[in-house]
Amino acid sequence: MSALGRKGSLIPFTAASGFMMVLLIAAMAFLACFSLAGALGTTRIAGTWTEGLAGAATVRIPAGEEDRARRISLVLDVLRDTDGVADARPLSEKDVADLLTPWFGGTPELGELPAPSIVAVTLDAENEPDPSVVQARLDGASAGAVYDDHGRWRNRAAQAARAIGNLSYWALGLTVLAIMAGVFVVVAIAMSAHKSTIEALRLAGAEDRFIAGLYQKRFFWLGALGGLIGSGIALGAFVGLDTLASVRSALPMLEAPYYWPFVWVGIVVVCGLIAVLAARLAVLTTLRGRA
């Protein structure tokens, strides 16, 4: 006797529709991997930028008639007397000249330029001073000295990175919805083609969840296979990108290849589960619509 109780054989699924489903989910999984990598990468980059700029500030003392060394000394006195400042150190003329080199070419002669003096400030990371208070104290000591804790740049960079990260998450969410919509439509079409079979199952006493289970089982494997292919290609693409231009610092997965298999299996299972959820929704909605 043939395998009587095999649920998978109760619905006559066709290989062609399965192939198209795998293709669709593979493409979507590929896009989802890039969205996820974009989200993770920008979050990491934002963190690197803000951490790199945190705990440091500069004081810019414009060139003027007054004695440069005296003005720097006054600024250092104020800074060293400010709560939250760990260290303050004037940049040497060579350091300033090095900073200006990209704009002037060669090594500029600072004596011929109205270049400002720069004081590099190291802040206590857990007790950074209020920039307006520091600025007010500097105003009293040396007119024209400008305190800059890079807050404006830090905030802009972080906001930009966060915005890109959020967009990536939205793109990921839309990709998941697109997978669900694709599966939903394919299941609805398949159910239309299997109408007489489903009718026979219902009249034999099949509950909606039993019929949904037949589709869920089928679409789990299609979803998982699509996820396996799509995410496999995406991971290969990341490795390829890394050999062209290092994206290792932005993509944590490239730095820790030992957890690639877990990420890959995770994506495959998630793709399968998304397909299951969409198939269930499609079957239950269609059956209730027919009743």
Binding site: S2, L4, G5, S9, A204, F210
Partner: peptide
């Protein structure tokens, strides 16, 4: 009759038992 053409005669006969969750 409403038999399912893709199933064998035995699978068709077993259908009410299969959907009821009875083991083969």
């Amino acid at each position: 009759f409403r038999l399912l053409d893709h199933l064998t005669a035995a699978e068709n006969v077993a259908l009410p038992l299969t959907v009821a969750g009875v083991r083969e």
